[in-house]
Design a binder for these strands. Structure first.
Lengths: 117, 117
DNA sequence: TGCGTTACTATCTTTCCGGATAGTGCTATC
DNA sequence: GATAGCACTATCCGGAAAGATAGTAACGCA
């Protein structure tokens, strides 16, 4: 794409993908859920530093994007369980690429910094 | 990663990758430059809606991340040319994955919406 | 002289986002 | 009765980000 290959280019799809994961909390929440279905409070505890308000907001966004499922149980007090959807799991390949590029990126940035110092 | 594969997990690298591209303008700027080296004003014209201030800020961030190169020419008025670095071009694979997932994501979101309506 | 050029930058204002905190309602338990 | 639990939500506030606009310096040109 950037290398001039003349690929059919749809930037909106890329933006959607980035937006699905951007911000401080989404990846951390997904990571927490990747280790098993969880209730609100469990996630809150595992994702250090997040407020209930932010957690609620981020969970909503993830649910809207069908990356996670929210299941309400008829208990008292009412409990809600969150889990990753198959669509959420389809992020794996992308996350691998993010990881790979991010590692390389860190190397590039660190290497140059090392040489400079 | 999310599918429970027990991959060695470095969320920071992924965050770096996301942050390198996030926001309203970075992808658009990279797209503009992918079609050829450009001067400030050219990018400004091609990336519809961006203010000089935001363009300057975003170009700085992209340069800090070594995704683009800024070259100053000894002309009058002084001219500056921006181009994508090899490291910037290394984003290609990741962008492909973003595109692929984003397309699938759109399908999933649109399909469900269609069924609902 | 006046205006344009170039790639920014400064400043004031507006908008947006998140922190901090309090609150919700009904059951369960002490 | 008092308190806790649950998953949120409301509200006030301050900080961050971006919009809107003006400005910069020195050359080139009419």
């Amino acid at each position: 794409m950037l290398a001039g290959e003349g690929c059919p280019f749809n930037i909106l799809a890329m933006k959607d993908a980035l937006e699905a994961l951007e911000g401080r909390w989404k990846l951390l929440i997904m990571l927490s859920l990747s280790m098993g279905n969880k209730r609100f409070k469990q996630i809150s505890k595992e994702v250090y530093g997040i407020t209930d308000k932010m957690l609620s907001k981020e969970l909503k966004a993830l649910e809207m994007n069908k990356l996670i499922k929210r299941e309400v149980f008829d208990t008292f007090p009412p409990t809600v369980e969150y889990s990753i959807t198959p669509h959420g799991k389809s992020l794996d390949k992308l996350l691998h690429e993010l990881y790979n590029w991010g590692q390389e990126h860190r190397n590039i940035i660190m290497e140059k910094d090392k040489i400079a110092s």
